[in-house]
């Protein structure tokens, strides 16, 4: 519940190389995500952001390099150990990935039933609260196919939050959302960090949201196949010496580069 205590590393990535078969996506990624960070992963479409997230949660294995949770190696951990390490982690997938044959309340409640002693009524209450937090109060008994794409995304976030994880991985939360809902989502992410001390890793292209919530970031580049910048997004926008990064953070409007102060 405290504000970021100075730099306690939550996840450390060391010299990571990611590849699908022979196709190397990114190499030499090294960065650190601290407790209480809202860490933004940026980069053009197809550069490997979602893949990076899959590596961080152990769905893909690094070709080279290592990922540490705290000061323990996640990459080299035994499967059972990994599973325990991931207990405190919630994930929102880019496609929502809701379980299609369960209602929203059941989607959110499934892990509550597995990992807590809560009774069915309590689980339902917690699920309702989580759905209310993402603006879906009253949709408990709907099936994923009966709600819109943006709503599925939000329901996916409610599911990721169900166990009050200490780390949240979110892949493009605001894709498909209107500006108001997108703003509410940003507020929610900030609030989760401030009140519950959640560390958030978020993949997003939404500039407004990047600057509003991100306090640290990494920028992946598809062409050079590595990270070309890291640091607080506003600082990168104003002071980065890499034209690609500045252009990205200014939506390609070159003329304003370097002319303002945060």
């Amino acid at each position: 519940m405290s504000q970021n205590p100075a730099s306690v590393p939550e996840v450390t990535v060391r010299n990571l190389t990611m590849a699908y078969g022979d196709f190397v996506l990114q190499r030499n990624l090294s960065f650190q995500i601290n407790r209480g960070d809202i860490f933004v992963v940026m980069g053009g479409s197809g550069c490997g952001k979602s893949t990076l997230m899959r590596h961080l949660i152990g769905l893909n294995d690094p070709v080279e390099g290592e990922i540490l949770y705290g000061d323990e190696s996640f990459t080299r951990a035994e499967p059972e150990r990994r599973e325990r390490m991931l207990r405190g982690v919630g994930v929102l997938y880019q496609s929502g990935a809701l379980w299609s044959s369960m209602t929203l309340a059941e989607n959110v409640g499934l892990v509550l039933g597995e990992f807590t002693d809560l009774g069915p009524d309590e689980i339902r209450d917690v699920a309702s609260l989580k759905l209310a937090l993402v603006g879906l109060k009253g949709f408990e008994d709907f099936y994923p196919s009966e709600i819109s794409g943006g709503m599925q995304k939000r329901a996916g976030l409610a599911r990721a939050m169900s166990l009050d994880p200490k780390m949240l991985f979110i892949d493009e939360p605001s894709a498909g959302l209107d500006p108001i809902s997108s703003r509410l989502l940003d507020d929610l992410i900030l609030e989760l960090r401030d009140s519950l001390g959640t560390t958030v890793v978020v993949v997003t292209h939404e500039l407004a949201s990047i600057f509003a919530i991100g306090n640290n970031s990494v920028f992946l580049d598809a062409e050079s196949r590595t990270m070309i910048a890291q640091g607080p997004p506003t600082e990168l926008r104003d002071h980065s010496d890499n034209p690609k990064v500045r252009s990205f953070l200014h939506r390609g409007e070159h003329q304003v580069m370097g002319s303002e102060n945060g």
Partner: peptide, 12 residues
């Protein structure tokens, strides 16, 4: 935040 969006009342 949880109250920011009103409840959908005509749910099934």
């Amino acid at each position: 935040l949880a109250e920011a969006v009103p409840e959908k009342t005509d749910a099934r």
